[in-house]
């Protein structure tokens, strides 16, 4: 189980996360939704070690993650699939996969075996091994990004806007792939702009606003709530007229 306890974090211009409390159950697919600038991506960044929280704790099965570097978090079993464009475009698919195993680069044989295993699940890894990542289509890149994040066999995988910039067909691929990964026993924590997509995929939904968790409910319940639509299409008349300085991170 992942637990955020009263986490405050930001980028120098004030806190984006303002005392965030959040629990993510093992082997679940949890999806965070919310307006731009609510701090969704920041949740993932603090968890994966890209950003250190100013205050608060992040625990994975009771073990503190918030004091660790990105490499140590990864070694602890939490891998993040970065937002769109996360592959190293100038490097081959093979090199990208090898870099996914950067932490275990000294056990070269195991690493190669692991990549071969993943190639069976995601055939494109083998088929386009020598092509540069930049030459792949958006959807193909997404799949390789997934595969790359799985090289170290993480117990938790973080997805930052997995459907950003993808056409509907590829979204479906991402949908299937995520379910596939989850079925292998991996906990999935994702951030998604496309609320409907995210909540249909997830079994638990979290709504964030201004750096805090507003609602945490089973995804299907959340999806069925009539107030959801108004919250995300900006039609709510009660919306306070405060504009967040700095805008979305």
């Amino acid at each position: 189980m992942i637990e955020f306890r009263n986490v405050c974090a930001g980028y120098g211009g004030g806190d984006v996360l303002q005392g965030l409390d959040l629990r993510v159950e093992d082997k679940s697919i949890t999806c965070i939704v919310g307006p731009n600038g609510a701090g969704k991506s920041t949740v993932l960044r603090t968890l994966s070690g890209l950003l250190s929280p100013r205050v608060g704790e992040i625990l994975l099965d009771g073990r503190a993650l918030h004091t660790l570097s990105a490499a140590q978090v990864l070694a602890a079993g939490v891998a993040q699939v970065p937002q769109q464009g996360g592959l190293f475009g100038g490097l081959s698919i093979r090199d990208n996969m090898l870099l996914g195993g950067y932490l275990v680069r000294r056990q070269r044989r195991e690493l190669n075996k692991r990549i071969d295993e993943l190639a069976e699940v995601f055939p494109i890894v083998a088929e386009r091994a020598l092509d540069k990542a930049a030459d792949l289509s958006g959807g193909q890149r997404r799949i390789v990004e997934f595969a790359r994040a799985l090289v170290t066999e993480p117990s938790v995988i973080l997805l930052d806007e997995p459907t950003l910039g993808l056409d509907p067909k590829t979204c479906a691929t991402v949908f299937e792939t995520t379910q596939q990964v989850n079925a292998l026993g991996t906990t999935v924590l994702m951030v998604e702009q496309n609320v409907r997509f995210g909540l249909q995929l997830a079994d638990h939904g979290v709504v964030m606003e201004r750096g805090q968790v507003l609602i945490s409910q089973p995804a299907d319940v959340l999806l069925g709530r009539s107030d959801m639509a108004s919250m995300f299409f900006g039609a709510a008349p009660t919306e306070p007229a405060v504009d967040v300085p700095g805008g979305p991170a």
Binding site: A70, A71, P82, G86, F88, L91, L99, G100, Y102
Partner: peptide, 16 residues
């Protein structure tokens, strides 16, 4: 090369 292309991604695969 990874650092040159995308620092965040490099950090995320465990590169210092």
């Amino acid at each position: 090369k990874a650092c040159a292309e995308n620092r965040d991604s490099a950090e995320l695969v465990g590169i210092n």
